[in-house]
């Protein structure tokens, strides 16, 4: 079966900073990969390269077995590629138009992507909203009149409207209250199972990654340090940095003092000096 995404050796630098270096992975249909790491570890840069918001300095991204974007010729091919990978941001306002009702936003996206029959669009809008647990009332509402969780689900519906192969979610549930976050997490696991949509899920929350993803890729200063099935990774972290991230998650019997000490050791052992300055 063709992989949804085939990513190899991505590298991106900004001036003297190496934001991402050596990220490779393959995402099978319906697969879900978590990108994990601290802020500044390169998660968002990687996500943005996947959807074409940033150009890698080197490395390739193959979508559905097609040629890498850089070599695509013609508007149609590039548009197909842009459709295939959709991004959901932490801030849902980045994908919704504040002046339009959620229903009209979705309708507009469908029209733009070549659905010219009004009745077909209307029924597709209902379908999309139902998929993320929203109904008539939310369709008729402006984004600011929805709760945070409803807004984020509307943003996901918008991304789904173009029938993408892959959704890239960058901390898309982090700002939500847990009771509402859980609603969105269930929507994500459903679209994966039912529609075979692949997910690249950026999150700092390991428990959430465990719930949503099969695999996780841990980034430290832009470099992958570990890439394994999430269950194995949590059972027996192979890299001291992964272990540190895992131990940092609060739980009963938790000892923040030990974690603080280990954090210093990991970062002192590392070749980077950013952390030395931070300590």
């Amino acid at each position: 079966m063709t992989a949804l995404l085939e990513v190899s050796h991505l590298r991106k630098t900004y001036g003297a900073t190496t934001a991402v270096d050596g990220v490779s992975f393959s995402l099978p249909p319906g697969g879900a990969l978590g990108l994990v790491g601290e802020s500044g570890s390169g998660k968002t840069t990687t996500a943005r390269m996947l959807v074409g918001l940033e150009r890698p300095d080197s490395g390739t991204i193959r979508v559905l077995g097609e040629a890498p974007a850089a070599t695509l010729r013609g508007r149609t091919a590039r548009l197909a590629r842009a459709k295939a990978v959709q991004m959901v941001f932490q801030d849902p306002y980045l994908s919704l138009d504040g002046r339009l009702t959620v229903g009209s936003t979705l309708d507009g996206v469908l029209r733009l992507h070549g659905c010219h029959d009004r009745a077909t669009r209307a029924s597709r809008v209902r379908e999309l909203l139902a998929q993320v647990g929203l109904g008539e009332r939310e369709a008729a509402a402006l984004p600011r009149h929805l709760s945070g969780g409803q807004r984020q689900r509307a943003a996901i519906a918008r991304a789904l409207a173009v029938e993408p192969a892959v959704l890239v979610l960058d901390e898309a549930v982090s700002a939500l209250d847990v009771s509402v976050q859980a609603q969105v997490l269930n929507v994500l696991t459903d679209i994966r199972r039912e529609a075979g949509i692949g997910l690249v899920f950026v999150s700092h929350d390991l428990a959430v990654v465990r719930y949503v993803c099969d695999e996780a890729l841990v980034l430290l200063r832009g470099r992958p340090v570990e890439h394994r099935p999430i269950a194995d990774l949590l059972d027996d972290p192979g890299h001291p940095y992964t272990r540190l991230l895992l131990d940092s998650v609060p739980r009963p019997g938790w000892d923040p003092e030990t974690i603080a000490r280990r954090r210093r050791e990991v970062h002192l052992a590392g070749q980077g000096d950013r952390f030395l300055r931070e300590l």
Partner: peptide
């Protein structure tokens, strides 16, 4: 970040 969180809580607890 989660690991910075641990440091700050260690400090506050101490």
């Amino acid at each position: 970040d989660v690991s910075t969180q641990a440091e700050i809580l260690a400090l506050l607890g101490g």
